[in-house]
Design a protein around this nucleic acid. Structure first.
Lengths: 345, 345
DNA sequence: TTTGACAATGAGCACGTTAACATCCGGCTG
DNA sequence: CAGCCGGATGTTAACGTGCTCATTGTCAAA
């Protein structure tokens, strides 16, 4: 622990030049030692390493990057970190960054006002980053005509393909296709869909996946119910569904597909409160698999997005040298627990 | 939207020198325009602005910072973003950063192995940052002897005061002091405490706050129950508590203080499953107020930490010029809902 | 017309780093 | 002993920016 508290000049941390002076070599030799170049005598290397240790030297990436190297950081522009999905994606990005010894330079775009990709890109490019990931959860007004900053690889997290940038997202559409088919295969031809808010792109794709799948199976879709992602909004819709079920008749639903897990939880609570059993009377599925550890005895059948996978792919596309433009949809997996009953036959 | 797709030289984005050449002025004049210096003719300024627009110029903070300015970014070292508390703190930091037009440069420290403050600080200082915030949720082995990198203001998120760095945290100890007194004032002199895992610093402070407060009130503490923060672990403890209550006697508890909301939720589920009513038979309080939107009809009386406030203060301490060292404990507020009954008299 | 004052602008250096090139030195060959 | 080779090391320039100082240009007062 000795040699860590030296004051160097004006209070900055030590530079390669100071290490060089102390070790009695040139800056370049210090650089060679730091970067593990082969042609340095063992004796010299040791002297340099000792000087580095004594001064607590750490190379400054900004200087190196200025010269033409890498900042070892990827920019990430988020709209709202709080959303559960964004957090898991962030986690995937962070993990990939850690594996590459990269940092993530994050900016959050302002509260409620919609922002353009050009805004985000311009604010990001002035930061010391080697590439950038732009996250959107509303449609950017300039999506089609956006041109990324030259020299900085730009990845957009979006279901829509972009002509000039690689795009990545969980397959929101496919997820509801899968779940709808799952319910149909279990004999539930009369189901209710509890959607998220209209402003959300994810919600629109989930709804489309559900509606189109029913259409392809030649099953009529009942009127959609709309929540706002919260458990309470799910509860409110659950009360309506319970009334329908108790009223009986050939149009009474046997299953509910909720566009996220919190709303599914609310639906279940409302159904049980009305004296109905899940899944004996009504089957319920959610989306996200976001309840782990949060509720006791989680038994919700749901769909797990590979959000960490999305984050990992996004990071790798942002650092990668390949300049190909792709539109990647990451598939999700069904998590079968015990809120769906097979009612065929 | 014209003039955004120019290729400049080797594919990098335009520099001030190129803008200067196009506008027919010197780099310095461009610099003056960018930084809003007063002494530039209106005609010149317009010509420069036009050139900037045409080349899509954005100043590079790294170059400026190298010269002695600011990177406009604060480093943040996290142990585990996923933890609910960390996320809210991150949110507070991000919001303060946005207000200052700063970015956050984030690195996550490796999975399970404990890390030292020196490790984190050394990995951070090579990034382009003006200051850094180090988050810990285990005790760092080198806490006492740690010396921050010269020239980079270092803030530690920790309940323990540090001799050379400003420290900030929610008042974990005070939170349980407050809740314990609250239960005592409502007549619950026989309560159970469901703690978090032993490895967690927060958990240790919460436990100490509970135990000391009972001691000061000359009330004997019943043996502590230990969970792992999860709802399921809370459920398991809730079953034991239910058995105690049903067994009756003068030692039967009338209240439960759970060290977080998820465990409180588990306790309540177990009690209700055993035929007991909350709060008629047993009162329950949690800590964190983390369930908003996640569960329907949230009625848990709990304690809200001002984590966004912690984040904001941390950011401001990291950018601030003041070199004073402080140890800040941010107070929390009681959120009274309906899981506590007054049984005095 | 000359001088001084003042505003606008330009030139040079410095920040920390590395690629490319230049130099030094020891040892080997002819 | 001269010449040469190759490995180790030093020197220079450049990345994009802002500060300091020098220079130019303009206008009014003497």
């Amino acid at each position: 622990m000795e040699g860590m508290a030296q004051q160097t000049r004006n209070g900055r941390s030590a530079s390669a030049a100071e290490v060089a002076a102390l070790a009695g070599v040139s800056r370049q030799t210090v650089s060679r030692v730091v970067n593990g170049m082969p042609n340095v005598t063992e004796k010299t290397r040791k002297r340099v390493l000792a000087a580095m240790e004594e001064l607590g030297f750490r190379p400054n990436f900004a200087g190196a990057a200025l010269r033409g190297g890498s900042y070892r950081s990827i920019g990430l522009c988020m709209y709202n970190i709080t959303r559960v999905g964004n957090l898991a994606t962030l986690e995937g990005i962070m993990q990939a960054a850690r594996e590459h010894d990269f940092a993530i330079t994050m900016i959050e775009m302002g509260g409620d006002k919609p922002y353009t990709l050009a805004d985000a890109s311009r604010r990001m490019v002035e930061r010391p980053v080697d590439g950038m990931i732009l996250n959107m959860n509303r449609m950017a007004p300039d999506f089609e005509e956006f041109v990324p900053q030259p020299g900085v690889r730009t990845v957009i997290l979006s279901m829509y393909a972009h002509p000039r940038c690689t795009t990545i997202d969980s397959d929101q559409y496919g997820s509801c296709e899968l779940l709808t088919n799952y319910l149909l295969e279990h004999g539930h031809s009369n189901m209710r869909f509890v959607a998220g808010p209209e402003s959300s792109i994810s919600s629109r794709f989930r709804e489309a996946g559900w509606r189109d799948t029913l259409g392809r199976a030649h099953v009529d879709a009942a009127p959609m119910l709309r929540g706002d992602w919260s458990a309470d909004s799910g509860y409110a819709m659950g009360e309506r569904i319970a009334a329908e079920v108790l009223a009986g008749g050939s149009q009474a639903p046997t299953a509910v597909l909720a566009a996220n897990d919190q709303m599914a939880l609310g639906v279940i609570a409302a159904l049980e409160n009305a004296g109905l059993s899940v899944p004996d009377d009504v089957s319920v599925v959610g989306i996200d698999d976001a309840l782990e550890g949060l509720v006791p005895h989680n038994r919700l059948t749901t769909l797990r997005f590979d959000l960490r996978g999305v984050g990992k792919l996004a990071f790798e596309a942002a650092v990668g040298e390949s300049s190909s433009i792709e539109a990647i949809h990451v598939p999700s997996t069904l998590v079968e627990r015990s809120t769906v009953r097979d009612i065929r036959g």
